[in-house]
Amino acid sequence: MSDKTHETGTDQIIKPSAEIFGPGTISMVLNVNGILQSIEMEPRTTLAEALRTSLKLTGTKVACNHGACSACTVWLDDLPVAACGILAIEVVSRKITTIEGLGDADHLHPVQKSFIEHDAIQCGFCTPGMVMSCAALLARNPHLGVEEVETAISGHLCRCGTYPHVVQAMLSLSAEQEADHG
């Protein structure tokens, strides 16, 4: 994806200063999936709300809204975090990656392909977050065992019980990479 399709508002990035923002609406720029986008938000707006409502990136799901289920997992500077517990204003100018930035129907990420192949999906509501955690794991550790996968997804809750197929999907990716690299 191109990195700067939306130039306006870059000067509005909040820099450390004594300035007081809010409580009403303010203009902010978020760097989401490589695109700088200006949005109107209040200081109380969470990152999850900003993504879902202002940017219409509804792939990030909110299930518990208290950081306990990880359905809202996005990457903040490449680290998985729970977007429901972060204020959008805190992450202005930081690099945010959502499920929409990971891959699309024509360019699926290997984790997405493997999830499909192993049916690591049921109702799908926890799936985008689960995919984000798994893709982050794969990026930092391509040689996975059950324990690494279980730890990486340990914060996720899935009521349908996709966990066993998620683990299988990830182990098969690991095995593939092992095969690729001899």
């Binding site: 879902r52 990136l57 909110v62 929409e100 799908g124 985008p128």
Partner: peptide
Amino acid sequence: AVDKVTGAACYTVD
């Protein structure tokens, strides 16, 4: 599956 793994699936909350 493709809609669900890419976040494109539209739930009522969306």
